[in-house]
Amino acid sequence: EPLWIRPDAPSRCTWQLGRPASESPHHHTAPAKSPKILPDILKKIGDTPMVRINKIGKKFGLKCELLAKCEFFNAGGSVKDRISLRMIEDAERDGTLKPGDTIIEPTSGNTGIGLALAAAVRGYRCIIVMPEKMSSEKVDVLRALGAEIVRTPTNARFDSPESHVGVAWRLKNEIPNSHILDQYRNASNPLAHYDTTADEILQQCDGKLDMLVASVGTGGTITGIARKLKEKCPGCRIIGVDPEGSILAEPEELNQTEQTTYEVEGIGYDFIPTVLDRTVVDKWFKSNDEEAFTFARMLIAQEGLLCGGSAGSTVAVAVKAAQELQEGQRCVVILPDSVRNYMTKFLSDRWMLQKGFLKEEDLTEKKPWWWHLRVQELGLSAPLTVLPTITCGHTIEILREKGFDQAPVVDEAGVILGMVTLGNMLSSLLAGKVQPSDQVGKVIYKQFKQIRLTDTLGRLSHILEMDHFALVVHEQIQYHSTGKSSQRQMVFGVVTAIDLLNFVAAQERDQK
Protein backbone atom coordinates (compact mmCIF):
# COMPACT_ATOMS: atom_id res chain seq x y z
CA GLU A 1 0.00 0.00 0.00
CA PRO A 2 1.40 3.46 -0.90
CA LEU A 3 2.45 5.82 1.89
CA TRP A 4 0.09 8.42 0.45
CA ILE A 5 -2.19 8.93 -2.53
CA ARG A 6 -2.21 12.30 -4.27
CA PRO A 7 -5.46 14.23 -3.86
CA ASP A 8 -5.06 15.45 -7.45
CA ALA A 9 -4.59 11.99 -9.04
CA PRO A 10 -6.19 11.65 -12.51
CA SER A 11 -9.86 10.80 -12.32
CA ARG A 12 -10.98 7.33 -13.44
CA CYS A 13 -14.65 8.31 -13.54
CA THR A 14 -16.48 7.02 -16.64
CA TRP A 15 -19.48 9.39 -16.47
CA GLN A 16 -20.53 10.77 -19.85
CA LEU A 17 -23.48 12.98 -20.72
CA GLY A 18 -26.17 10.80 -22.30
CA ARG A 19 -24.88 7.53 -20.89
CA PRO A 20 -27.71 5.40 -19.35
CA ALA A 21 -27.84 5.39 -15.54
CA SER A 22 -28.06 1.59 -15.67
CA GLU A 23 -24.41 1.49 -16.80
CA SER A 24 -23.15 3.33 -13.70
CA PRO A 25 -20.69 1.23 -11.64
CA HIS A 26 -21.80 2.98 -8.45
CA HIS A 27 -24.46 2.30 -5.86
CA HIS A 28 -27.10 5.04 -6.13
CA THR A 29 -29.57 6.13 -3.47
CA ALA A 30 -32.94 7.78 -3.98
CA PRO A 31 -34.15 10.54 -1.62
CA ALA A 32 -36.19 8.98 1.19
CA LYS A 33 -39.22 10.52 2.88
CA SER A 34 -38.50 11.46 6.51
CA PRO A 35 -40.54 9.84 9.30
CA LYS A 36 -42.23 12.07 11.89
CA ILE A 37 -39.73 10.95 14.54
CA LEU A 38 -36.16 10.54 13.31
CA PRO A 39 -34.21 7.48 14.55
CA ASP A 40 -31.03 9.61 14.88
CA ILE A 41 -29.71 13.01 13.82
CA LEU A 42 -28.12 11.60 10.65
CA LYS A 43 -31.62 11.41 9.15
CA LYS A 44 -31.66 15.22 9.24
CA ILE A 45 -29.04 15.39 6.51
CA GLY A 46 -30.43 16.47 3.14
CA ASP A 47 -33.83 17.81 2.10
CA THR A 48 -32.69 21.39 2.73
CA PRO A 49 -34.98 24.34 1.88
CA MET A 50 -34.93 26.49 -1.24
CA VAL A 51 -35.47 30.14 -0.28
CA ARG A 52 -36.15 33.14 -2.50
CA ILE A 53 -33.64 36.00 -2.18
CA ASN A 54 -35.90 39.04 -2.37
CA LYS A 55 -33.81 42.20 -1.85
CA ILE A 56 -30.26 41.59 -3.03
CA GLY A 57 -31.20 40.61 -6.59
CA LYS A 58 -33.29 43.76 -7.01
CA LYS A 59 -30.55 45.90 -5.46
CA PHE A 60 -28.11 44.78 -8.16
CA GLY A 61 -30.59 45.06 -11.01
CA LEU A 62 -31.31 41.38 -11.66
CA LYS A 63 -34.40 40.70 -13.76
CA CYS A 64 -34.43 36.97 -12.98
CA GLU A 65 -35.60 35.13 -9.87
CA LEU A 66 -32.76 34.45 -7.40
CA LEU A 67 -33.10 31.36 -5.19
CA ALA A 68 -30.84 30.01 -2.43
CA LYS A 69 -30.37 26.33 -1.60
CA CYS A 70 -29.72 26.64 2.15
CA GLU A 71 -27.29 23.83 3.00
CA PHE A 72 -26.69 25.17 6.52
CA PHE A 73 -29.98 23.46 7.48
CA ASN A 74 -28.18 20.10 7.44
CA ALA A 75 -27.65 18.49 10.87
CA GLY A 76 -24.00 19.53 11.16
CA GLY A 77 -24.55 22.94 9.60
CA SER A 78 -23.07 22.52 6.11
CA VAL A 79 -23.31 20.93 2.68
CA LYS A 80 -20.43 18.64 3.71
CA ASP A 81 -22.74 16.62 5.97
CA ARG A 82 -24.08 14.98 2.82
CA ILE A 83 -20.73 13.66 1.63
CA SER A 84 -19.55 12.74 5.13
CA LEU A 85 -22.51 10.44 5.70
CA ARG A 86 -22.36 9.06 2.16
CA MET A 87 -18.62 8.25 2.41
CA ILE A 88 -19.15 6.44 5.73
CA GLU A 89 -22.20 4.51 4.49
CA ASP A 90 -20.42 3.42 1.30
CA ALA A 91 -17.30 2.39 3.27
CA GLU A 92 -19.49 0.36 5.64
CA ARG A 93 -21.35 -1.21 2.72
CA ASP A 94 -18.17 -2.42 0.97
CA GLY A 95 -16.61 -3.65 4.24
CA THR A 96 -13.78 -1.08 4.39
CA LEU A 97 -15.03 0.51 7.60
CA LYS A 98 -15.66 -1.80 10.55
CA PRO A 99 -16.83 -1.21 14.15
CA GLY A 100 -14.02 0.26 16.27
CA ASP A 101 -12.05 1.62 13.30
CA THR A 102 -10.57 5.12 13.12
CA ILE A 103 -11.59 7.76 10.58
CA ILE A 104 -8.89 10.31 9.63
CA GLU A 105 -9.61 13.20 7.28
CA PRO A 106 -7.71 16.27 6.03
CA THR A 107 -10.31 19.04 5.82
CA SER A 108 -10.97 22.77 6.07
CA GLY A 109 -13.40 21.94 8.86
CA ASN A 110 -16.90 21.32 7.51
CA THR A 111 -16.23 17.79 6.24
CA GLY A 112 -14.56 17.16 9.59
CA ILE A 113 -17.68 18.28 11.46
CA GLY A 114 -19.85 16.07 9.25
CA LEU A 115 -17.58 13.06 9.80
CA ALA A 116 -17.27 13.73 13.55
CA LEU A 117 -21.06 13.96 13.79
CA ALA A 118 -21.53 10.65 11.98
CA ALA A 119 -18.64 9.06 13.93
CA ALA A 120 -20.25 10.12 17.23
CA VAL A 121 -23.53 8.45 16.23
CA ARG A 122 -21.91 5.38 14.66
CA GLY A 123 -19.20 4.90 17.31
CA TYR A 124 -15.97 5.48 15.37
CA ARG A 125 -12.82 7.24 16.56
CA CYS A 126 -12.32 10.40 14.50
CA ILE A 127 -9.13 12.41 13.87
CA ILE A 128 -9.41 15.66 11.91
CA VAL A 129 -6.36 17.37 10.36
CA MET A 130 -6.96 21.00 9.44
CA PRO A 131 -4.92 24.13 8.55
CA GLU A 132 -4.32 26.78 11.23
CA LYS A 133 -6.33 29.48 9.43
CA MET A 134 -9.62 27.68 10.03
CA SER A 135 -11.89 29.25 12.62
CA SER A 136 -11.77 28.48 16.34
CA GLU A 137 -15.52 27.81 16.20
CA LYS A 138 -14.93 24.80 13.93
CA VAL A 139 -12.31 23.50 16.35
CA ASP A 140 -14.68 23.90 19.31
CA VAL A 141 -17.51 22.06 17.54
CA LEU A 142 -15.16 19.23 16.53
CA ARG A 143 -13.90 18.86 20.10
CA ALA A 144 -17.47 18.84 21.42
CA LEU A 145 -18.27 16.00 19.00
CA GLY A 146 -15.35 14.00 20.41
CA ALA A 147 -12.97 14.39 17.47
CA GLU A 148 -9.21 14.64 17.94
CA ILE A 149 -7.74 17.65 16.13
CA VAL A 150 -4.32 18.14 14.53
CA ARG A 151 -3.45 21.62 13.14
CA THR A 152 -1.06 22.22 10.23
CA PRO A 153 0.59 25.36 8.74
CA THR A 154 -1.81 27.28 6.48
CA ASN A 155 0.87 28.08 3.90
CA ALA A 156 2.16 24.50 3.51
CA ARG A 157 1.80 23.18 -0.06
CA PHE A 158 -0.66 20.31 -0.42
CA ASP A 159 2.15 17.86 -1.35
CA SER A 160 4.34 18.92 1.59
CA PRO A 161 4.72 16.45 4.51
CA GLU A 162 3.60 19.32 6.80
CA SER A 163 0.32 19.97 4.92
CA HIS A 164 -3.03 18.76 6.24
CA VAL A 165 -3.01 16.10 3.50
CA GLY A 166 0.55 14.96 4.28
CA VAL A 167 -0.01 14.81 8.05
CA ALA A 168 -3.26 12.86 7.63
CA TRP A 169 -1.51 10.19 5.55
CA ARG A 170 1.33 9.96 8.07
CA LEU A 171 -1.20 9.32 10.84
CA LYS A 172 -2.97 6.71 8.73
CA ASN A 173 0.32 4.85 8.26
CA GLU A 174 0.96 4.93 12.03
CA ILE A 175 -2.51 4.06 13.41
CA PRO A 176 -3.85 0.50 12.92
CA ASN A 177 -7.32 0.05 11.39
CA SER A 178 -7.48 3.68 10.34
CA HIS A 179 -8.94 5.00 7.10
CA ILE A 180 -8.79 8.23 5.13
CA LEU A 181 -12.13 8.40 3.36
CA ASP A 182 -10.50 11.10 1.21
CA GLN A 183 -13.07 13.62 0.04
CA TYR A 184 -10.63 14.75 -2.69
CA ARG A 185 -10.72 11.37 -4.47
CA ASN A 186 -13.79 9.55 -3.15
CA ALA A 187 -16.56 9.04 -5.74
CA SER A 188 -19.08 9.18 -2.88
CA ASN A 189 -18.43 12.94 -2.73
CA PRO A 190 -19.97 13.92 -6.11
CA LEU A 191 -22.39 10.97 -5.95
CA ALA A 192 -23.99 12.36 -2.79
CA HIS A 193 -24.87 15.51 -4.72
CA TYR A 194 -25.79 13.72 -7.94
CA ASP A 195 -28.25 11.47 -6.07
CA THR A 196 -29.72 13.91 -3.54
CA THR A 197 -28.80 17.62 -3.78
CA ALA A 198 -29.40 17.85 -7.53
CA ASP A 199 -32.67 15.90 -7.32
CA GLU A 200 -33.89 18.18 -4.53
CA ILE A 201 -33.09 21.27 -6.62
CA LEU A 202 -34.91 19.86 -9.65
CA GLN A 203 -37.93 18.94 -7.54
CA GLN A 204 -38.04 22.29 -5.73
CA CYS A 205 -37.77 24.19 -9.02
CA ASP A 206 -40.15 21.87 -10.92
CA GLY A 207 -37.28 21.19 -13.30
CA LYS A 208 -37.09 24.85 -14.34
CA LEU A 209 -33.81 26.64 -13.72
CA ASP A 210 -31.54 28.55 -16.06
CA MET A 211 -28.37 29.02 -14.01
CA LEU A 212 -26.70 27.41 -11.01
CA VAL A 213 -23.89 29.16 -9.13
CA ALA A 214 -21.69 27.25 -6.67
CA SER A 215 -18.38 27.97 -4.96
CA VAL A 216 -15.79 25.24 -5.43
CA GLY A 217 -13.50 23.48 -2.95
CA THR A 218 -13.07 19.74 -3.49
CA GLY A 219 -15.45 20.17 -6.43
CA GLY A 220 -17.80 17.40 -5.36
CA THR A 221 -20.80 19.71 -4.95
CA ILE A 222 -20.59 21.39 -8.35
CA THR A 223 -19.60 18.16 -10.14
CA GLY A 224 -22.44 16.05 -8.76
CA ILE A 225 -25.12 18.72 -9.17
CA ALA A 226 -23.93 19.83 -12.61
CA ARG A 227 -23.84 16.31 -14.03
CA LYS A 228 -27.45 15.67 -13.02
CA LEU A 229 -28.58 19.09 -14.27
CA LYS A 230 -26.82 18.55 -17.62
CA GLU A 231 -28.85 15.34 -17.98
CA LYS A 232 -32.21 16.67 -16.82
CA CYS A 233 -32.03 20.39 -17.59
CA PRO A 234 -29.48 20.77 -20.44
CA GLY A 235 -30.09 24.51 -20.93
CA CYS A 236 -28.98 25.36 -17.38
CA ARG A 237 -25.65 27.23 -17.23
CA ILE A 238 -23.23 26.11 -14.50
CA ILE A 239 -21.14 28.87 -12.92
CA GLY A 240 -18.11 28.01 -10.76
CA VAL A 241 -16.77 30.38 -8.08
CA ASP A 242 -13.07 30.24 -7.15
CA PRO A 243 -11.32 32.61 -4.69
CA GLU A 244 -8.37 34.75 -5.78
CA GLY A 245 -5.23 32.85 -4.78
CA SER A 246 -6.67 29.46 -5.79
CA ILE A 247 -5.99 27.65 -9.08
CA LEU A 248 -9.27 25.80 -9.74
CA ALA A 249 -10.73 28.17 -12.35
CA GLU A 250 -10.40 27.91 -16.11
CA PRO A 251 -8.97 29.32 -18.32
CA GLU A 252 -5.66 29.38 -16.47
CA GLU A 253 -5.25 33.14 -17.04
CA LEU A 254 -7.99 33.74 -14.46
CA ASN A 255 -5.70 32.33 -11.76
CA GLN A 256 -2.74 34.60 -12.46
CA THR A 257 -2.14 36.66 -9.32
CA GLU A 258 0.60 37.30 -6.78
CA GLN A 259 -1.91 36.53 -4.02
CA THR A 260 -1.46 33.08 -2.49
CA THR A 261 -3.59 33.27 0.66
CA TYR A 262 -7.19 34.24 1.32
CA GLU A 263 -9.42 34.46 4.38
CA VAL A 264 -12.61 32.83 3.06
CA GLU A 265 -12.75 29.20 4.23
CA GLY A 266 -13.76 25.95 2.59
CA ILE A 267 -13.25 26.88 -1.06
CA GLY A 268 -10.26 27.04 -3.40
CA TYR A 269 -7.09 24.91 -3.48
CA ASP A 270 -3.53 24.91 -4.79
CA PHE A 271 -4.20 21.62 -6.62
CA ILE A 272 -7.02 20.18 -8.75
CA PRO A 273 -8.92 17.58 -6.66
CA THR A 274 -9.58 14.29 -8.42
CA VAL A 275 -13.37 14.54 -7.96
CA LEU A 276 -13.61 17.97 -9.64
CA ASP A 277 -14.91 17.64 -13.21
CA ARG A 278 -14.22 21.06 -14.71
CA THR A 279 -15.79 20.06 -18.05
CA VAL A 280 -19.30 20.50 -16.59
CA VAL A 281 -18.64 24.12 -15.56
CA ASP A 282 -19.72 26.54 -18.30
CA LYS A 283 -17.99 29.61 -16.87
CA TRP A 284 -15.71 30.45 -13.96
CA PHE A 285 -15.58 33.65 -11.91
CA LYS A 286 -12.96 34.66 -9.35
CA SER A 287 -14.04 36.18 -6.03
CA ASN A 288 -12.15 38.14 -3.39
CA ASP A 289 -12.37 38.23 0.39
CA GLU A 290 -13.84 41.71 0.66
CA GLU A 291 -16.84 40.99 -1.57
CA ALA A 292 -17.30 37.55 0.01
CA PHE A 293 -17.66 38.93 3.54
CA THR A 294 -19.61 42.00 2.43
CA PHE A 295 -22.19 39.84 0.66
CA ALA A 296 -22.31 37.31 3.51
CA ARG A 297 -23.14 40.14 5.91
CA MET A 298 -25.70 41.43 3.40
CA LEU A 299 -27.38 38.01 3.21
CA ILE A 300 -27.65 37.99 7.00
CA ALA A 301 -28.80 41.60 7.43
CA GLN A 302 -31.16 41.89 4.46
CA GLU A 303 -32.41 38.34 3.87
CA GLY A 304 -32.06 36.79 7.34
CA LEU A 305 -29.93 33.96 5.91
CA LEU A 306 -27.38 33.03 8.59
CA CYS A 307 -24.70 31.79 6.18
CA GLY A 308 -20.91 31.67 6.01
CA GLY A 309 -18.32 33.55 3.94
CA SER A 310 -18.28 31.21 0.93
CA ALA A 311 -22.01 31.87 0.53
CA GLY A 312 -21.07 35.53 0.17
CA SER A 313 -18.59 34.61 -2.58
CA THR A 314 -21.31 32.69 -4.39
CA VAL A 315 -23.91 35.47 -4.27
CA ALA A 316 -21.32 38.14 -5.17
CA VAL A 317 -20.64 36.20 -8.37
CA ALA A 318 -24.32 35.37 -8.95
CA VAL A 319 -25.34 39.04 -9.16
CA LYS A 320 -22.73 39.45 -11.93
CA ALA A 321 -23.32 36.20 -13.81
CA ALA A 322 -27.13 36.41 -13.70
CA GLN A 323 -27.19 39.84 -15.37
CA GLU A 324 -27.61 37.94 -18.65
CA LEU A 325 -30.85 36.28 -17.46
CA GLN A 326 -34.25 37.78 -18.26
CA GLU A 327 -37.53 38.12 -16.41
CA GLY A 328 -39.13 34.72 -15.90
CA GLN A 329 -35.75 32.96 -15.71
CA ARG A 330 -34.27 31.50 -12.54
CA CYS A 331 -30.83 31.40 -10.90
CA VAL A 332 -30.08 29.04 -7.99
CA VAL A 333 -27.14 29.64 -5.64
CA ILE A 334 -25.72 27.12 -3.16
CA LEU A 335 -25.17 28.52 0.35
CA PRO A 336 -22.71 25.95 1.79
CA ASP A 337 -22.53 26.59 5.53
CA SER A 338 -23.68 28.51 8.59
CA VAL A 339 -22.43 31.67 10.27
CA ARG A 340 -21.95 29.53 13.41
CA ASN A 341 -18.43 28.76 12.16
CA TYR A 342 -17.40 32.42 11.87
CA MET A 343 -18.70 34.28 14.93
CA THR A 344 -15.21 35.61 15.75
CA LYS A 345 -14.35 36.23 12.10
CA PHE A 346 -16.40 38.13 9.50
CA LEU A 347 -19.36 38.53 11.87
CA SER A 348 -17.07 40.57 14.16
CA ASP A 349 -16.60 44.27 13.32
CA ARG A 350 -13.23 44.17 15.06
CA TRP A 351 -12.01 41.30 12.85
CA MET A 352 -13.31 43.02 9.71
CA LEU A 353 -11.47 46.21 10.69
CA GLN A 354 -8.23 44.36 11.40
CA LYS A 355 -8.35 42.68 8.01
CA GLY A 356 -9.17 45.90 6.19
CA PHE A 357 -12.63 44.78 5.01
CA LEU A 358 -14.35 47.48 7.06
CA LYS A 359 -13.37 51.13 7.53
CA GLU A 360 -13.46 52.99 10.83
CA GLU A 361 -15.94 55.49 9.38
CA ASP A 362 -18.36 52.60 8.80
CA LEU A 363 -18.77 52.42 12.59
CA THR A 364 -20.55 55.26 14.35
CA GLU A 365 -19.26 54.99 17.93
CA LYS A 366 -17.32 57.98 19.35
CA LYS A 367 -13.55 57.76 18.89
CA PRO A 368 -10.66 59.33 20.86
CA TRP A 369 -8.82 62.37 19.45
CA TRP A 370 -5.94 60.33 18.02
CA TRP A 371 -8.13 57.74 16.24
CA HIS A 372 -7.92 59.21 12.72
CA LEU A 373 -4.23 60.17 12.84
CA ARG A 374 -1.93 58.21 10.51
CA VAL A 375 0.63 55.61 11.59
CA GLN A 376 3.37 57.83 10.16
CA GLU A 377 2.70 60.26 13.05
CA LEU A 378 4.33 57.75 15.43
CA GLY A 379 7.79 58.60 14.09
CA LEU A 380 8.99 55.00 14.18
CA SER A 381 12.72 54.30 14.21
CA ALA A 382 14.43 52.09 11.63
CA PRO A 383 13.60 48.42 12.29
CA LEU A 384 15.94 45.66 13.35
CA THR A 385 15.80 42.94 10.68
CA VAL A 386 17.54 39.59 10.33
CA LEU A 387 18.43 37.42 7.34
CA PRO A 388 16.98 33.88 7.15
CA THR A 389 20.51 32.42 7.20
CA ILE A 390 21.40 33.70 10.69
CA THR A 391 21.24 31.06 13.44
CA CYS A 392 18.48 30.85 16.04
CA GLY A 393 21.03 31.19 18.84
CA HIS A 394 22.54 34.35 17.37
CA THR A 395 19.07 35.83 16.73
CA ILE A 396 18.08 35.28 20.38
CA GLU A 397 21.30 37.03 21.50
CA ILE A 398 20.60 40.01 19.21
CA LEU A 399 16.98 40.39 20.33
CA ARG A 400 17.94 40.23 24.01
CA GLU A 401 20.81 42.68 23.55
CA LYS A 402 18.65 45.21 21.68
CA GLY A 403 15.61 44.72 23.93
CA PHE A 404 13.25 43.50 21.20
CA ASP A 405 10.74 40.66 21.38
CA GLN A 406 10.43 40.17 17.63
CA ALA A 407 12.10 40.99 14.33
CA PRO A 408 11.16 40.85 10.64
CA VAL A 409 13.05 38.32 8.53
CA VAL A 410 14.02 39.75 5.13
CA ASP A 411 16.05 38.56 2.16
CA GLU A 412 19.18 40.31 0.85
CA ALA A 413 17.01 42.75 -1.13
CA GLY A 414 14.95 43.66 1.94
CA VAL A 415 11.77 41.83 0.88
CA ILE A 416 9.71 40.52 3.80
CA LEU A 417 9.84 36.75 4.32
CA GLY A 418 8.13 36.54 7.71
CA MET A 419 8.63 37.20 11.41
CA VAL A 420 10.51 35.61 14.29
CA THR A 421 9.68 36.17 17.94
CA LEU A 422 11.71 35.48 21.03
CA GLY A 423 8.89 33.42 22.54
CA ASN A 424 8.40 31.29 19.44
CA MET A 425 12.12 30.55 19.10
CA LEU A 426 12.54 29.65 22.78
CA SER A 427 9.51 27.34 22.76
CA SER A 428 10.76 25.65 19.56
CA LEU A 429 14.20 25.14 21.14
CA LEU A 430 12.73 23.75 24.37
CA ALA A 431 10.48 21.39 22.40
CA GLY A 432 13.48 20.12 20.43
CA LYS A 433 12.02 21.25 17.10
CA VAL A 434 15.15 23.28 16.30
CA GLN A 435 18.73 23.58 17.54
CA PRO A 436 20.55 26.86 18.36
CA SER A 437 22.73 26.22 15.30
CA ASP A 438 19.74 25.95 12.94
CA GLN A 439 18.98 28.85 10.62
CA VAL A 440 16.25 31.19 11.80
CA GLY A 441 14.41 30.49 8.55
CA LYS A 442 13.19 27.27 10.19
CA VAL A 443 11.07 29.16 12.73
CA ILE A 444 9.68 31.88 10.46
CA TYR A 445 5.95 32.34 10.68
CA LYS A 446 3.66 34.43 8.51
CA GLN A 447 0.59 34.76 10.72
CA PHE A 448 1.21 38.39 11.58
CA LYS A 449 -0.70 41.61 10.91
CA GLN A 450 0.55 44.23 8.48
CA ILE A 451 -0.24 47.93 8.47
CA ARG A 452 0.75 50.83 6.23
CA LEU A 453 1.98 54.31 7.11
CA THR A 454 -1.22 55.79 5.69
CA ASP A 455 -3.48 53.59 7.86
CA THR A 456 -5.06 55.16 10.94
CA LEU A 457 -4.03 54.71 14.54
CA GLY A 458 -7.59 53.49 15.08
CA ARG A 459 -6.97 50.53 12.81
CA LEU A 460 -3.63 49.93 14.54
CA SER A 461 -5.43 49.99 17.90
CA HIS A 462 -7.82 47.26 16.75
CA ILE A 463 -4.88 45.10 15.62
CA LEU A 464 -3.01 45.56 18.91
CA GLU A 465 -6.07 44.49 20.90
CA MET A 466 -5.50 40.98 19.51
CA ASP A 467 -1.80 40.93 18.57
CA HIS A 468 1.40 41.91 20.36
CA PHE A 469 2.75 43.86 17.38
CA ALA A 470 2.08 44.92 13.81
CA LEU A 471 4.56 45.09 10.95
CA VAL A 472 4.59 48.47 9.20
CA VAL A 473 5.16 47.93 5.48
CA HIS A 474 5.29 49.97 2.31
CA GLU A 475 5.03 48.92 -1.32
CA GLN A 476 7.88 49.36 -3.75
CA ILE A 477 7.48 49.07 -7.52
CA GLN A 478 10.50 47.50 -9.20
CA TYR A 479 11.12 47.59 -12.96
CA HIS A 480 13.01 44.76 -14.64
CA SER A 481 15.20 44.66 -17.74
CA THR A 482 12.31 43.02 -19.62
CA GLY A 483 10.24 46.17 -19.15
CA LYS A 484 7.86 44.47 -16.75
CA SER A 485 7.28 45.77 -13.24
CA SER A 486 6.51 43.99 -9.98
CA GLN A 487 5.35 45.19 -6.59
CA ARG A 488 7.09 44.05 -3.43
CA GLN A 489 6.62 44.77 0.24
CA MET A 490 9.42 46.32 2.28
CA VAL A 491 9.69 46.69 6.07
CA PHE A 492 9.34 50.19 7.48
CA GLY A 493 9.09 49.30 11.15
CA VAL A 494 7.56 47.21 13.91
CA VAL A 495 4.97 48.85 16.17
CA THR A 496 3.71 47.61 19.55
CA ALA A 497 1.06 48.74 22.03
CA ILE A 498 3.82 50.45 24.04
CA ASP A 499 4.70 52.62 21.01
CA LEU A 500 1.06 53.69 20.65
CA LEU A 501 0.62 54.36 24.38
CA ASN A 502 3.86 56.36 24.57
CA PHE A 503 2.77 58.49 21.60
CA VAL A 504 -0.68 59.22 23.06
CA ALA A 505 0.77 59.99 26.52
CA ALA A 506 3.45 62.30 25.08
CA GLN A 507 0.92 64.22 22.96
CA GLU A 508 -1.46 64.69 25.89
CA ARG A 509 1.43 65.80 28.14
CA ASP A 510 2.54 68.37 25.55
CA GLN A 511 -1.01 69.73 25.22
CA LYS A 512 -1.16 70.32 28.98
Rank of each mutant, 00 (worst) to 15 (best):
F295M: 14
G356I: 08
V375S: 08
R509T: 13
L429P: 08
A296S: 09
K442V: 15
K355W: 10
V281G: 04
V315W: 06
E365A: 11
K512T: 12
G379Y: 11
L248F: 04
Q476F: 14
A249P: 04
S338I: 04
P368M: 06
Q435T: 12
A292E: 07
P273V: 06
L347H: 02
P336K: 02
K484L: 14
A316R: 13
A318S: 14
K367A: 15
V332N: 01
P368W: 08
I396E: 08
L378Y: 06
D242H: 01
R452G: 12
L358I: 01
R297L: 08
E258H: 14
T294D: 04
T395L: 10
I238Q: 00
Q476K: 11
K320H: 04
I239K: 04
P368S: 12
S338E: 06
F285M: 02
K512H: 10
V375L: 13
S338N: 09
E401A: 12
A407G: 15
E250Q: 15
W351R: 04
F469I: 13
A382Y: 04
Q439D: 03
T257K: 10
I334A: 04
D289A: 00
Q406A: 07
K484T: 03
L426E: 09
G328Y: 06
E291I: 08
D289E: 05
L430R: 14
L276T: 03
F469D: 05
Y342T: 01
L373D: 11
T260R: 02
D510C: 14
G414V: 12
G309D: 02
L254I: 03
G266T: 01
G304Q: 02
Y445H: 12
W369D: 06
K433S: 09
L335Y: 03
E365G: 14
K446F: 15
H474M: 08
C392W: 15
A296C: 08
L430K: 13
T274D: 01
P408F: 05
G312Y: 01
G312T: 05
E377K: 13
V415D: 14
L501C: 06
V339I: 03
A470I: 03
M419S: 14
D282E: 13
E250A: 14
G356F: 02
V415T: 15
S348A: 11
D455L: 09
L453I: 14
A497H: 07
S338A: 08
L299F: 03
